[in-house]
Design a protein around this nucleic acid. Sequence first.
DNA 1: ACCTGAACACCGTTCAAGT
DNA 2: ACCTGAACACCGTTCAAGT
Lengths: 221, 221
Amino acid sequence: MQWWRARYAARERQRPRAGGLELSRITRAALEIVDAEGLTALTMRRVAEETGVRHTSLYRHVASRDELLVELVDHVLGEVAPRQTGAGWRADLEQAAHAFRQVLLAHPAVVPLLTVGQLLGPNALRGREFGLGLLIRAGWEPARAVRIYLTVTHFVIGTAVLGTGGAARGAGERTAMTDLFAGLPQYPLVRELAGPLNLPDGDQEFAFGLTALLDGIGDPR
Amino acid sequence: MQWWRARYAARERQRPRAGGLELSRITRAALEIVDAEGLTALTMRRVAEETGVRHTSLYRHVASRDELLVELVDHVLGEVAPRQTGAGWRADLEQAAHAFRQVLLAHPAVVPLLTVGQLLGPNALRGREFGLGLLIRAGWEPARAVRIYLTVTHFVIGTAVLGTGGAARGAGERTAMTDLFAGLPQYPLVRELAGPLNLPDGDQEFAFGLTALLDGIGDPR
DNA sequence: ACCTGAACACCGTTCAAGT
DNA sequence: ACCTGAACACCGTTCAAGT
């Protein structure tokens, strides 16, 4: 998207009135709503209500609801704070992946939004720079570093988006599912393994997958 | 979701009038709309128009738009036809993963829907049975088989959902992105690697990730 | 430059009424 | 049992008018 270039330019034009609206207030209100009540609760009217303004005023700061969502995503990405462990590139990468995952788990309603477009906001780019630097300093050839960076990033987002969909199910739903399976004799394995299949252990699956992925990737050179 | 149990029951109650509506006609119309014009074009009014009926009639066959989406997802899953290669469990699993991916690529607008809930339709369960059978026959311990099956399945869906978001960008958008990066000196690596970072080679990334994943998983025992 | 009020087109869903 | 028509509440977005 060339959105971000236009956004960067639009922000310069902004000259907030004393006590008036600001983009950051809108984004913050949006995140609060979404954290508390999910994505469907995030309407322009609701955001306006929360920021003490009429909903049509929002269009002065944001071109559309979609643009608000893009801003929201990068705002959340700003919470990721990867650090160097001093224990080598793989430990650094694993630490960054876990830090990223933790932020996503803290804002499950935002996660689906990470899949709709490219992540090109300032915070997303900061993360890219960090990840690529890590891998290149470790000796990976640039093209390979890009591949590894994208693969791991997509793995983190992918497991998060699938986990939060499934994580919505409580214990009640889980037993209902086991009941459902019990009534389907045509799928013996599905039925027999209903327990582990329906256990929402996203963290273990994440750790298993990340380890396998990095084991398979190996070392530079 | 206990949806499916209710759905299975509701279908029994159905007694279609000659020339009347049928769930399968609704689902097929929905897929056509979504394939041609994307998910936002899939409104109840639009589906009704396509099936030659008033939009309120749809609620006789489907409880809500969400339920229509669930039916649509399982309908698409029905197109996946994994087969045994005779070249071992890993080849079988890779073949199934590719077959799954191909179906998802053929219906990009449906892909995001695979992330909203559990996949419990009849076609989804058929796929589970196939995948689990494959792994258990290969000698994997049941709990391990479940883990591997879910990890690979989630990998396929995850890369598809992220790829189709990025795949929307044409050549024009790609150069616009490279231009954007060129103007951001604070991210030297992002800037230097803009080419590979913005090249939409989802298939290669998929192959790379799947190979790494399975390499890392290793062999049974 | 920013905010407001009225208005538009478009949703999903409900329900009483017909056959 | 299935289909229809009218109606409801709720969206995102536009635009002329105010300060």
